[in-house]
Design a protein around this nucleic acid. Sequence first.
RNA 1: GGGUAGGUACCGAAACGGUUAAACGGAGCAGACUGUAAAUCUGCCGGCGAUGCCUUUGGAGGUUCGAAUCCUCCCCUGCCCA
Length: 400
Amino acid sequence: MVELERQLKIIQKNTVEILPERELIEKLKSSLKKKKPLRVKYGIDPTGAEIHLGHTVPIRKLKDFQDLGHKIIFLVGDFTARIGDPTGRNETRPILSKPQIEENLRGYKQQIRKILNLKKTEFRYNSEWLAKLKLEELLKLSSNFTIARILERDDFFLRYKSGKPIFMQEFLYPLMQGYDSVVLNSDIELGATEQKFNLLAGRTLQEVLGKEPQVIITVPILEGTDGKKKMSKSFHNYIGINEKPEEIYGKLMSIPDSLMKKYFHLLTELSEREIFKLLKNPLLAKKRLAASIVENYYEKRKAEKAEKHFETIFQKRKVPEEMPVLQLKRENLKEGKIWIVRLLCLTKLTTSHNDARRLILQKAVSLNGEIITNPDLEIELKEESILKLGKRHFIKLKTT
RNA sequence: GGGUAGGUACCGAAACGGUUAAACGGAGCAGACUGUAAAUCUGCCGGCGAUGCCUUUGGAGGUUCGAAUCCUCCCCUGCCCA
């Protein structure tokens, strides 16, 4: 195992808070002495969400722990998913079936294996104990919290103030998350800053129930591609790690410059000094950022290809080497012709005929390099043509 | 349980019997400008082979030539009283 000072330094990097830091040091010391790894808990929802770069911030931190020889425990909130973490604006969620949860989790693992060594990782489901929890026990747990305390939580407070509903079950969420820590005997629990309250609930309950309280570590929340709101699927500002290299690269290039520094620190291995140097040239810096993040999830070759692709399409405004191909069936053609609006819908580039019309009128559509302006146009297709929508959507059409 | 204010498109929010797919803002999309950035400007932002037609303002009925707007019942939420 790695010596204390170095461990501490690695752990501290890119965190917002470590509470209480002194306890962390104690835990590390005793772990070294007994040669016993610390148990690091991280909670996830089995809702089948795509993992995006925002999620990778805590997961990368978990990797630090894993590399230091500690034990990572993923707490799968299959029971708590019924409530939905009140963080953010969610409504009550549908109850997931067991097979559904299994499938979601497979998808989850498939994604995080790009970051963590899954063989050394433990997965636990909280229905294992929460489903069995008796009302009596729940009462006992809840007697450790007051409404005022829970209402302090920022998102509850805001909702309450603005007259939005808060349901009883939501108040129970931090409690249950805290109870998970009790059962799992976690030494450390990790989460984004918005999780602070829930993480602290774990400390409280562990202490009350006679266990050594966990240390909580919070990591920053990552803003999405818009540079304002936190990265989230519902804000459409996310970059999924399963997306194609070109997509990841392109989306990263579109983030505001002001975000680059944070992205570099939280999502790449580059050193402070390298980052500082790079940032002097924003364009190059961003390209480097995009490339190195793509490399985290794909081979280097793919990252280079993504960069080329970007340069071709956006910097040179040329047609990319590769693009999706659509084979047009004969029944779609009338005397060898097809209505442009219909064609766009067939390619799924547009969602409706109106959508297609609009885009044509806005000069967003071109065929073989020529902008189409007439939405009533019947076009005659050659064996092979290239249809372009907006700046970045290309489709190769074949008629043979 | 009683009182009261509400439920409008992805979100926030106007309109409160008749120039109407429903002001305005945000998000999104397209175009211009760029470093595909940001900022800014412009346009679009329910559907239909379409100078017209169809479906929309919590749900179901009703009044009316005409309803998001009025009435009845139901569902949901905030606040106050208990």
